Simulated assay, not measured.
Amino acid sequence: MRPTIRETALRRRHLTASLLVLLLVCAPLVGCSLGADQSGLDIPGFNPGATGSSDQANAQAALEYLSPDGEISDGRWVPGEMTTERWEALTDRDWGPAGLEELTAAMATVSTMRTDQDEQTAAKATWTVARSIEFAVDQVPIKDYTDAMKQNLAILLANCPDEIAGLASGGSLEGSSVYGLSGLVTDAQFETALYRIIDDEHAADTLVTAMLSYHHDQIDAEMPTATSPEATLLGLYQSAAQTMGYLDGIAELRADEAASDTINTDDMNRVLRAQGYVDAAKYGLLNEATIEAAVTGNNGGPFSFYDEVDGQPTITAPNPMTPDAAHEYIRWDQLVEDATMDDLDVEINTGHSLGYTSGHAAEVVR
């Protein structure tokens, strides 16, 4: 028996009322879903295309969406009720590619605020980054990672340089509060996030570039006041190489299942060696014959990186150093016998080997 017009109208009215109730429940949480996700989140005031920019308003919009309330307690961010509900809604959502890409773009943008001068903002952003890593690893199967999602998460992880360098040197995010993310994510969660994205070439480039910059910033900060300049420089370059080796080890681990290894070991070590020679010259650690070779060693003339500033010999470098540019510095090294250059080569090779071993043994959930 077919339903009457009155019965049909009543059913439609009931469906409309039910839908209205569901919409009202979902309204405070933009991430709430009525079913399979076919679109983005439409986060108020957030532009997913500005992920890598320094737009504070964009980052603030993403932060307010992912962590709408909470407070600092003992230096750590404690989420409030609205934030807890927001993440419960995000966890329960039936995700599709568009939504995940916008969500990870928001996560990446928030990560840029980890070093904000405002203590509350920095703590809030760090907690959100930890929750984002946990979400990406525990809630999204590796098969659902799109290239855009991997590149967004690479930005997020690149804004965790202390944690990457710490794990590379044998440290842990579990236990003592050495790092910002200590106690907020496990080593396995962090390393799994690295593992799942590093097969994307752009993601790998983001991580390598960020970590090279991080380590060189450390060199620039420590060398001017170092009481033992040569030992300090050698130690810092071993640390940098250890981080690069760690990423290389994880990339090769991933390459066992992916199409190719996204990190070229030879290129990376060549860049470190070349930059190391530049820094050794900058801090007066190379001998006179080595500097003279920079002036005359290029078929009787100077290498392109040689210059004189205020009458003083100066070894210049592109920023950033590239594998192609590094070849010329390696040619320079091959012309001379310089103990500091040789020691840099040894420390870089040692560091890479140590880091590679750690990376290849990373705790990952495939």
Results as ranks from 00 to 15, higher is better:
residue 27 A to S: 12
residue 257 E to Q: 15
residue 15 L to T: 11
residue 211 M to R: 14
residue 140 V to W: 04
residue 178 V to H: 13
residue 151 Q to E: 15
residue 168 A to M: 09
residue 64 E to V: 10
residue 147 D to P: 08
residue 97 P to M: 08
residue 320 P to K: 02
residue 363 E to G: 00
residue 185 V to M: 12
residue 141 P to M: 09
residue 218 Q to T: 07
residue 200 D to V: 07
residue 98 A to E: 14
residue 87 W to F: 11
residue 300 G to P: 12
residue 342 D to G: 14
residue 197 I to A: 09
residue 101 E to M: 10
residue 38 Q to K: 11
residue 263 I to T: 00
residue 228 S to T: 15
residue 339 A to I: 14
residue 282 K to S: 09
residue 165 A to Y: 08
residue 50 A to Q: 14
residue 239 S to L: 05
residue 311 G to L: 12
residue 187 D to K: 04
residue 40 G to P: 04
residue 116 D to I: 05
residue 206 T to K: 08
residue 154 A to W: 11
residue 114 R to G: 15
residue 29 L to M: 04
residue 302 P to M: 07
residue 256 D to N: 12
residue 116 D to H: 12
residue 334 Q to G: 05
residue 36 A to P: 01
residue 135 F to W: 07
residue 356 Y to R: 11
residue 217 D to K: 02
residue 359 G to E: 08
residue 34 L to C: 08
residue 310 D to P: 10
residue 213 S to N: 13
residue 87 W to D: 04
residue 9 A to C: 05
residue 254 R to P: 02
residue 321 M to V: 01
residue 292 E to P: 04
residue 362 A to E: 06
residue 25 V to H: 00
residue 118 D to Y: 05
residue 61 A to E: 10
residue 295 V to D: 06
residue 180 G to M: 13
residue 345 D to C: 00
residue 348 I to F: 02
residue 158 A to Y: 07
residue 39 S to C: 04
residue 157 L to Y: 07
residue 269 N to G: 06
residue 51 T to D: 09
residue 49 G to S: 09
residue 360 H to Q: 12
residue 150 K to M: 12
residue 239 S to R: 10
residue 328 E to L: 13
residue 158 A to M: 10
residue 229 P to Q: 07
residue 172 S to N: 08
residue 117 Q to L: 14
residue 104 T to G: 11
residue 45 G to S: 07
residue 118 D to P: 07
residue 346 V to F: 02
residue 26 C to T: 03
residue 23 L to T: 00
residue 150 K to W: 00
residue 126 T to N: 08
residue 285 L to W: 01
residue 14 H to M: 10
residue 218 Q to G: 12
residue 98 A to F: 07
residue 232 T to W: 03
residue 305 F to M: 04
residue 351 G to Y: 06
residue 91 T to G: 13
residue 356 Y to L: 10
residue 47 N to D: 14
residue 288 E to D: 15
